[in-house]
Design a binder for these strands. Structure first.
Lengths: 345, 345
DNA sequence: TCCGAGAATCAAACCGGTTAACGTCACCAC
DNA sequence: GTGGTGACGTTAACCGGTTTGATTCTCGGA
């Protein structure tokens, strides 16, 4: 492979010299912030093209005090990230709006609270103009912290205290109630729930909705969204003297693991045990029985969060956005009689 | 929420003034590139602490000509990203080494070839010092392109032409041969393979290994790694006059979809049909039957790629790294008799 | 004829760091 | 004394853009 003779990247000065103008003119020609004659513009563009000039992102960032990037700090254990079906889709949604705005996405994984603070400080030091905060906790410390750092921000989830940031909320309670109603319609009376960690806002909301619908916390268990915990909580529930006939999981990963466990001990699904998940993992429609779940459209969530953040950075005031992107997917894992719902293609 | 009076971020100049020294001294005190007396250092650090000074990433990037960031451009359809189990784990591995090096990760999703080129140019314009290239194609255009842009790089996968970049390779052929041997040992003679898109290097390698072991391409089908294609290819294979008794899939997503399809038409697994996947999705060990597959340790791959890239950026010469991270996981989906292999905890 | 306005461009300051070159001063050997 | 050396700081240039305040030129109107 021919070792390149280090082409010495051209700068705006080189372009200006080649076009016979000054740096300022080149800048104006591209930004359009001052009128430049068509003739000069043409010369400038030609020179830039010929030199293959790319404006330096860091120089521009320094001069404009804009990183032209947004950040996401993931405070999760790498192993959990690996098993997370939400995150990549969310990113895809975010990127779909960033791409057209020429804004980059900076990602950081932080294992500890300390690493997390460092990550946000790094963002604030000029790596990003704003951040999207996921996996909201109740009274999340990040909201005041990020605000004090002078960053723009958007939170995904219900933040109850007054927030300086735009807040993108979804209604997870309604689909939970719908599932319970559906299971009741199928004749179930002992309906259990395997929740996610209850200090997450979304886990909490889902379990509250479950409690409201069922009226008892006898059959409420707390998992951690991982497959192993789905299996273990299921084993515990099924070992009860009066075990549930239906289990509602806070995500599909736990539901699938639970479903498999139930079958491995000889139960039939949905005959002996009805199973429902949450999230609509890409596999859930392709299992047998296909899994009843709630499609949460993470791509759409990503898109809306990114748009809200760009708006915030552009100076628009913070607001609350209510998203309606949850869709109940009734499938075979909760109904003995096949329906002709037809949401599967 | 109290509107902050725009704290006017402190600069190195403010710190210098407060400590009664010049900017250069502050810089040296922190970088240690010139000796500074303990007394002065203490004053500088105190001033920085008091002012909550964070050095500006963009100013530093401009001055040092280093972005202190690396990039990954994902050339995939958002829908496919969403169903990808490899990617988040890989990212987690990458981050685990970046975090300690204070290097950021810039992500870009590019839907088209054109967008992809733009993304790499953006990286080259100072957003990143180097990139990791995934999903290598045979004779991938990105290798010369990225090199010409003056970026550092690492490719994951077997690039056969001489490459200016460090190349991280894995041996996917051996586990494929092992699975075939294992299936033969179970008595199977009609063994099919549902490959991924064959223009990907890794799909190609896997299918070649399959062909070498089986000796016929009668039962080779090409999928796209998505669940739907796993189901459809399976349906086609099982509809053959002389259908296979074992199917080997290029990833777990297709395998799980295929397995479910087989069961939905009344076949038992592994009794009537043995099924094996590739990747060891987080769910695979928790299905019933648990899925025989190959654990590919994407976290480790990410870690090694990131280390190699940082080394390259630091000026070390490119090299080829052979990774041994594939582990065959024999589970119930391919063996009628339960074994006591015990690799499951 | 002279003035004012607007268009097009230039020159220079500025963003916030890093770094090469240079100045001091103290100390030591000869 | 003289010269050399190392430690510690300072000055000023530089990185590659953007932006602001002149400057020049043209043209229309009073």
């Amino acid at each position: 492979m021919p070792q390149l003779p280090s082409p010495a990247k051209p700068t705006i000065g080189d372009v200006a010299a080649k076009a016979g103008v000054t740096k300022a003119t080149v800048s104006h020609a591209f930004s359009g912030r001052r009128p430049i004659s068509e003739a000069t513009k043409a010369r400038v563009f030609a020179a830039a093209e010929e030199l293959q000039w790319l404006p330096s992102a860091s120089a521009r960032a320094l001069a404009t005090r804009r990183a032209n990037a947004i950040g996401i700090v993931l405070a999760r254990d790498p192993e959990i990230i690996a098993s997370d079906t939400f995150f990549p889709a969310f990113i895809a949604g975010v990127e779909s709006v960033l791409a057209t705005a020429e804004v980059a996405l900076v990602l950081q994984v932080a294992g500890s609270r300390d690493a997390e603070e460092r990550a946000y400080r790094a963002m604030a030091s000029g790596r990003a103009d704003g951040v999207i905060m996921l996996d909201l906790h109740r009274a999340d410390w990040r909201v005041p912290y990020v605000h004090q750092l002078g960053l723009h921000g958007v939170v995904l989830g219900a933040y109850d205290a007054p927030s300086p940031f735009t807040c993108v909320r979804t209604d997870d309670a309604t689909p939970m109630a719908e599932i319970v109603a559906h299971l009741r319609g199928e004749g179930h009376t002992r309906i259990a729930h395997v929740a996610g960690p209850l200090d997450y806002v979304h886990s909490h909301v889902r379990s509250q909705a479950y409690l409201a619908a069922v009226g008892s916390e006898d059959l409420l268990a707390e998992g951690d969204f991982g497959a192993a915990s789905g299996r273990d909580r299921t084993a515990e529930l099924l070992a009860l003297p009066d075990p549930p006939t239906a289990i509602l999981y806070a995500n599909d990963t736990m539901a699938i693991a639970g479903l498999s466990y139930a079958r491995s001990i000889g139960l039939s699904v949905p005959g002996d045990l009805a199973v429902a998940g949450f999230d609509d993992d890409h596999l859930s429609a392709h299992l047998s029985p296909a899994l009843t779940t709630v499609a949460t459209d993470p791509i759409e969530r990503g898109r809306v969060c990114a748009e809200a953040l760009l708006a915030d950075i552009a100076g628009e005031p913070a607001r609350t956005i209510q998203l309606d992107c949850n869709r109940l997917q009734l499938r075979a894992s909760t109904q003995v009689q096949p329906t002709l719902q037809g949401e599967e293609r």
